Simulated scan of single mutants.
Amino acid sequence: MANEVATAAASGSAATERFHQDKSPFDAVKDTPKERVDLLAREVLGAIHETIRKHKVTYDEYNALKAWLIQVGAAGEWPLFLDVWVEHVVEDVATAHRHGNKGSIEGPYYVPGAPELGADATIPMRDGESGTPLLWEGSVTSTDGTPLAATVELWHADNDGYYSQFAPGIPEWNLRGTFATGPDGKFRIRTIQPAPYQIPTDGPCGKLIAAAGWHAWRPAHLHVKVSAPGHELLTAQLYFPGDPHNDDDIASAVKPELILSPVAGDDGSAKVDYGFVLDPVQG
């Protein structure tokens, strides 16, 4: 394992396999009326048709698109493509009604079932894990201020930009943990501050980025899922101030409300205070 190198193909295949294991997408929409399926399919296709007409797309360009779409599927990069360039709009629409914390995209690297660690714990990490030590304190409340006994799932990349279970040579649950607050809603987590990273560029998504002259960078971020009985699940990413790609994130997922305010310690560590307000489920 030590001499294996992380690749977009391997990462994409792992993300696709994980999606199939953890999601039941058709169960959630099995009762969708045919009229809505018809509406959405026709409007998406209509937007494609309008782009072709407006910009006089040639057969060479069309065939290049067809070949690229086939490559995305063969490389297992559909989760990467959709999570980077589409999901942020779905998330905006799905959570626009909320009065509590702002959310963000889940991304392709979530894995359920991370070790349960309590309300005050250190996330699993390797001995001498590279990166700035980070102490995160916060609490979870409802929109009326009531403290909630909640679950905070945390996962993030390491200091090289890799996620456990999606890159070789990293322990299975490295930098992944589930923290359960007490009735007071408070939690205290010790982890490391992740680094910015580029999304995989050695596959077809990378070809699109190169052809369009885009960059592939995501700012450093922590992923969380916060849940409590009777409240809506919050999925979010938390960012760090001063990152050069907070303003031009390739995934368009940064929101001002999600940027942390860490305080540097004398020992080179950092501390941050950031909590969550969850919306009650609407009856």
Score class of each variant (00 low, 15 high):
Tyr110Lys: 11
Val111Phe: 06
Val111Leu: 14
Pro112Ile: 01
Gly113Val: 13
Ala114Ile: 05
Pro115Ile: 03
Pro115Gly: 06
Gly118Ile: 02
Gly118Ala: 05
Ala119Gly: 05
Asp120Gly: 01
Ala121His: 04
Thr122Gly: 08
Thr122Tyr: 09
Ile123Gly: 07
Met125Val: 08
Met125Tyr: 06
Asp127Arg: 13
Gly128Asn: 15
Gly128Glu: 15
Gly128His: 14
Glu129Arg: 10
Glu129Phe: 11
Ser130Asn: 03
Pro133Tyr: 14
Leu135Trp: 04
Trp136Ser: 13
Glu137Tyr: 02
Glu137Asn: 14
Gly138Trp: 00
Gly138His: 12
Ser139Pro: 02
Thr141Met: 04
Ser142Arg: 03
Thr143Asp: 09
Thr143Ala: 14
Asp144His: 02
Gly145Lys: 01
Gly145Phe: 09
Gly145Cys: 04
Thr146Phe: 02
Thr146Glu: 11
Pro147Thr: 07
Pro147Arg: 07
Ala149Met: 04
Ala149Asp: 06
Ala150Thr: 03
Thr151Asp: 06
Thr151Gln: 13
Thr151Ile: 03
Val152Tyr: 04
Val152Lys: 07
Glu153His: 01
Glu153Ser: 09
Leu154Tyr: 00
Trp155Leu: 06
Asp158Lys: 02
Asp158Ser: 01
Asp158Thr: 00
Asp158Asn: 15
Asn159Met: 11
Asn159Thr: 09
Asp160Ala: 11
Asp160Gly: 08
Asp160Gln: 13
Asp160Ser: 13
Gly161Pro: 00
Gly161Val: 00
Tyr162Cys: 04
Tyr162Leu: 14
Tyr162Lys: 10
Tyr163Ile: 10
Ser164Arg: 04
Ser164Met: 01
Ser164Asn: 09
Ser164Phe: 00
Ser164Leu: 08
Gln165Arg: 15
Gln165Leu: 03
Gln165Trp: 06
Gln165Cys: 01
Phe166Ile: 00
Gly169Gln: 01
Pro171His: 05
Pro171Ser: 07
Glu172Leu: 08
Glu172Val: 09
Trp173Ala: 08
Asn174Pro: 01
Asn174His: 10
Leu175Phe: 07
Leu175Ser: 07
Arg176Glu: 03
Arg176Lys: 14
Arg176Phe: 05
Gly177Lys: 05
Phe179Glu: 10
Ala180Lys: 15
Thr181Gln: 09
Thr181Asp: 05
Gly182Pro: 01
Gly182Arg: 09
Pro183Arg: 11
Gly185Leu: 01
Gly185Asn: 11
Lys186Gly: 07
Thr191Glu: 08
Thr191Tyr: 06
Thr191Arg: 06
Thr191Pro: 08
Pro194Met: 09
Pro194Thr: 07
Pro194Gln: 05
Ala195Thr: 15
Ala195Val: 10
Tyr197Leu: 12
Tyr197Asn: 07
Tyr197Ala: 14
Gln198Gly: 13
Gln198Arg: 10
Gln198Asn: 14
Pro200Ser: 13
Pro200Asp: 07
Thr201His: 08
Asp202Cys: 01
Gly203Ala: 09
Gly203Lys: 05
Pro204Asn: 11
Pro204Met: 14
Cys205His: 05
